[in-house]
Each structure stands twice: as structure tokens, then as C-alpha cells.
Simulated scan of single mutants.
Amino acid sequence: MGQAGQSVGARGFLSEKGEILLWSTTSGKEEGKMAQNVIVYTQTTCGPCQEEKMWLTQHNIPFEDRDIRKNEAYFQEAINLGASMTPVTWIKKENGEEVVIHGFDKEQIKKALDLS
């Protein structure tokens, strides 16, 4: 096992607890497309959260996983985005447009990330 803060591949690093955390610079669709940031607010016990993270990973869409039960600041961020449930997905496009998706909605995510 690596040390906290150690890079894991091109898109991740290890947390202090040994979890692999991911970040995003592109949508994963094609090189040359607009850079995008994807943050998913989750809980360990949330089935749809786990499904969304697996789906994003399977589609090579980098994202940052923010567990609202492990970090009070993440919990407050999710509340500020209007969360009443998880997952909450926040997407910021290169053009500055921000999209918030409540619940795991593949079609809304595809639309927000300009995926076919």
C-alpha cells in the first residue's frame, strides 16, 4: 500500500485511509474536448452512489468522490447544492456552466458531459 498523497495512475491519489481518490480534467469522451470537473457527493451506504461511481469509472469519466459522512465540509457543500439525498453530482464545464444532478440519472449525466 502506498503513502497518503501518493499518485495512483494519471488520475488519482491515495487518501490517509488508503482510499483511491480521483480528480477530473476532461470528460473522458475524446481528446480535445472541453475540460470538465465532476464531483460526486456520496455516502458509503448509498446503493445509487456506488452504482454511479461504478458507471462513471466504466465510462472512463474521471471524478472526485466526496463522502458526506466522512467530511462535514462536504456535507455542507451538498446541502448548499440543494441535496435532499445522495448522490449529488456537480459538473463544471470549461465554459463555466455548472450542472447539478440529484440522484443517479445516467441520461442527465450524459447530457451534461456532452456524451452520446
Rank of each mutant, 00 (worst) to 15 (best):
M34P: 07
V40D: 04
F63D: 05
V40H: 00
T42E: 07
I68Y: 08
T44R: 10
E52P: 02
V38N: 00
H59I: 00
M54C: 07
T45A: 12
N71H: 15
V40S: 01
I39T: 10
Q43K: 11
Q50S: 04
R66A: 14
E64D: 07
Q36Y: 03
F63I: 04
T57H: 04
E64I: 07
I68P: 05
R66T: 10
W55Y: 02
Q43I: 14
V38A: 01
D67F: 06
Q58W: 01
K29W: 10
W55V: 02
D67Y: 05
C46L: 09
D67C: 04
N60E: 15
Q36N: 06
D65R: 01
C49L: 04
F63N: 02
Q43T: 14
R66M: 10
W55T: 01
H59C: 02
T42R: 02
P48C: 06
Q58F: 01
E31V: 12
R69F: 11
T44F: 09
P62Y: 09
T45I: 11
N60D: 15
H59M: 03
Q50K: 02
P62C: 09
N71S: 13
T44Q: 08
T57C: 05
Y41E: 13
V38D: 03
G47H: 06
K29Q: 10
D67G: 05
F63M: 06
T45M: 13
K33F: 14
I68W: 10
E72A: 15
Q36T: 08
G32V: 03
W55N: 00
G32Y: 06
G47E: 10
N71G: 09
R69T: 15
D67I: 08
T42K: 03
A73Y: 11
P62G: 11
R69D: 13
R69H: 12
V40L: 01
L56R: 02
I68H: 06
E52T: 02
E31F: 12
P62T: 06
M34S: 12
D65I: 03
I68M: 08
N60M: 13
I61L: 04
A35P: 12
Q36F: 05
H59E: 02
C49E: 08
P62F: 06
Y41Q: 11
C46D: 14
R69K: 11
E31M: 13
A73L: 14
K33E: 15
N71E: 15
N71I: 13
E72W: 11
E52C: 01
G47V: 10
M54K: 10
E51R: 05
K33D: 15
P62N: 10
Y41K: 04
T44S: 12
F63Q: 03
G32C: 07
L56K: 01
A35I: 14
Q43A: 14
V38H: 01
N71Q: 12
K70R: 11
E72P: 09
Q43E: 15
A35L: 10
D65K: 03
Q36W: 04
E64C: 08
